[in-house]
């Protein structure tokens, strides 16, 4: 009697859990537009949180942005053909250093934050299955200082991840690719890593 009750409960809970999973599954992985919306909402919430130190604020924003990006893909796109000239260890180091560099330079920008808001303008599917979400950072009432930012997202292991920022029609992936192409041609992978290390050390020194 007792054991059958228990098994009934167990079965019931099991069925409920399955049901919950079945319902939750489509919601668990938000679409590309939602990813951008949620990311900017989370970032703005942190920026508006009173009493956070500069460092804490930066760290939390960085964590949010990085969680929604795919650095292996960004790194491969940025290095393009040169990716295979890097050894696996160099590739690892590149991903790490490039991420630190971006965090240090763009993190500084956060200190100048002044009640900006983000509006999602539109989104569209690209030919290769990626998604582009267009947004506008609204600064001031007259619209003359607004900044257009497009996000390129790719579905990686079931999650939509940001792989490029296109700021006022300038793609960061394309821009860094042009820089790295020159640098690899001139000094090979080691030169690239060297410059990145130096730049990050300097950037973090200024930032702190």
């Amino acid at each position: 009697m007792r054991s059958s009750t228990r098994s009934w409960i167990r079965d019931g809970l099991g069925a409920l859990a399955l049901l919950a999973l079945g319902i939750a599954a489509p919601q668990a992985a938000p679409g590309p537009r939602e990813v951008v919306e949620q990311t900017s909402e989370q970032v703005i919430a942190v920026l508006n949180e009173p009493g956070l130190s500069r460092e804490a604020r930066r760290e939390r924003v960085e964590a949010i942005v990085i969680a929604n990006m795919d650095f292996p893909t960004v790194s491969r796109l940025v290095l393009a053909r040169n990716w295979s000239r890097f050894s696996p260890q160099q590739q690892e180091e590149f991903m790490r250093e490039f991420q630190r560099h971006l965090a240090a330079t763009y993190g500084r920008r956060l200190d100048e934050y002044q009640n900006e808001t983000v509006t999602i303008l539109s989104d569209r599917r690209e030919a290769n299955g990626d998604w582009t979400v267009r947004s506008k950072i609204v600064r001031g009432a007259d619209g003359r200082n607004d900044i257009l930012v497009d996000y390129r997202l790719r579905e990686i292991a079931g999650q939509w991840k940001i792989i490029d920022f296109i700021i006022e029609q300038v793609s960061l992936v394309a821009n860094f690719r042009a820089q790295f192409q020159d640098m690899v041609a001139r000094g090979g992978p080691e030169h690239v890593l060297q410059v990145l290390r130096e730049k990050t050390a300097k950037g973090e020194a200024i930032a702190s």
Binding site: L77, R81, D130, D150, I166
Partner: peptide
């Protein structure tokens, strides 16, 4: 003319987003 056009099509070349396999 895709600078100020919020619904504008186009963007960087699609080639930019191809992973190049050696």
């Amino acid at each position: 003319d895709r600078t100020d056009d919020a619904d504008g099509k186009g963007g960087p070349d699609e080639e930019l987003y191809e992973i190049v396999d050696p």
